[in-house]
Nucleic acid binder design. Structure first.
Lengths: 170, 170, 170, 170
DNA sequence: AATGAATGAGGATTCATTCAT
DNA sequence: AATGAATGAATCCTCATTCAT
């Protein structure tokens, strides 16, 4: 572990509090005061680290999503066969969301329906993963691992939709 | 068609405007003024028909969901076989959401994450449909139409999740 | 007097309160609550009539400056001779400011140093009057009423500057 | 030049930055951070030298006005005749303000309308100069240099007002 | 039934100021 | 002497909601 500068630690602390608070109350119903209270700092301090409530929200996925994606990619390198890879992705997804339920709430319920977020770089990682799944399905169809008469887009929707449905209901 | 009292018509007009406005701006970002403008009435008039902004939101599913569910049930009576029935449900869902995109937005993005709504009677219809799907899957498993080694809960999640994923992405 | 719509009366009431409050406390030190208290209405009501504190400030000169300018112009029509006209302007200025000390404070101390205001149409009236004085001085020089070796710009500065100095000191 | 203690130099540096910043942005719109940035020091350091933002503002005239006044007085000793003296004062004023535009902005636009400042010792120098002008006018009237039927107060207002008008418009 | 007018309550944000290091 | 970090206090502004007409 590289020692982090103090301000980074504080930033993480705020993000964690924000994640928890937003997940439980929703973005609009949660106030900056709520987040500050959760983080045990003052309202004003939050603004030393994030310029607005919205920027705070958008900063939540940050490194986490990227890390999740990168870890996944590094694991996939060791696997052969599209089916195994897809299975691994599904598994990781569940494992990740189960261990980060607040993160799941924020990304799936709050960020997903925010138009501005859909245009932000952090959203690219989500799209990358989605594209990867599609790619693997096509690959599996080509190698004969999967049936050739399936609609890969529909299959992807089934995979991701099922995960979301199960995680969202949790 | 039974002639409706005037006030019912006005109520529908407001609900329609609310549905459109909430769908496009989100519940919090849409103001009562926005809804009133869309309905071409004054803010105060809305409060003659609905006691609060939240009640207005919760009133949107109202008859529509019930009607959707009832129509579905009446159609299903004419079908034999679980597979056909499930297929019919899926088909109706898509057909309904495609023809009522604002309704889809409101129910899937806004209401679903509102805890209070999950305790309201209108939500019961959603649950009923969900239970029906589960029931049909089990039925199909029993009759041998579906494989017996599937997890019916997972299959239901796959069906509903896929629909939601596809509709939500639209 | 044409009867004014109610909302115009309320607007005037707010403007009057704002003028008094801003004159006594300065724009920044005066709060919307101060103005509201002076007008004996609630803070929120101010925003029904003016979109922001700054717009409220900029609305103060409004009709008053225009009226002042127009009255002056109509009087000047009856006068012959540049000297008389200039004297009349000076007289009116003093008379006006003495009878509207808060207005004088707001326009001379607050608005004058606001860059945004200098680009607003209301400021045009101020400039018009300044130009008129210059024009009259030049006219008097041409007709021989005033000495021909004076610098008209300097004389104008002397006239307006003296007025401002005396009014500002009051 | 007497060598100044280091802390005096730092104080000057801050005052210079404050003068520039206040002149350009106005007292209220300029933040302590703005001043600190201009002075290339931290916010907190300013408070090592000045107890509050307002004290910082009030400290700007400080030595400068006094020096200006004293230089003027020493020059005037060499002049004979009220007219020459008044002319000299006017000349010095313009020369000074032209070479110190930020100082002019701060004293004429910001400090002048601050009631607290009018009660501070630094303001005394301004008044002294104003009184001196009045005194010279009266002197000139007594010696016959100036017409005896003028209103000395009005003439003083004309002199100072003209200067202010021209400098303020610059 | 309909609404113009008014407002209470609340929230995001800013910034001068403090203080431990 | 210098400052990074933290915050209390304030203020603008929004908006759901009420009510007299």
């Amino acid at each position: 572990m590289v020692p982090q500068p103090k301000s980074e630690i504080r930033k993480e602390q705020i993000l964690k509090a924000a994640m928890k608070t937003f997940a439980h109350k929703g973005f609009h119903d949660a106030t900056i005061s709520d987040v500050a209270r959760e983080a045990k700092i003052s309202d004003a301090t939050i603004y030393e680290y994030f310029s607005s409530k919205e920027e705070l929200l958008f900063s939540i996925p940050g490194k986490t999503t990227r890390k999740h994606k990168e870890e996944l990619e590094s694991i996939l390198e060791f696997l052969r066969g599209a089916a195994d890879k897809v299975r691994c992705i599904i598994h990781r997804y569940f494992w990740f969301f189960e261990n980060n339920p607040d993160y799941a709430s924020v990304t799936m319920l709050i960020l997903k329906q925010n138009r501005k977020f859909l245009e932000m770089p952090a959203y690219k990682d989500v799209q990358d993963l989605s594209r990867l799944v599609l790619h693997l399905i096509k690959e599996g169809m080509a190698t004969g691992e999967f049936r050739a008469d399936i609609n890969p887009y529909l299959v992807r929707a089934a995979i991701l939709g099922t995960i979301e449905h199960l995680v969202g209901a949790a």
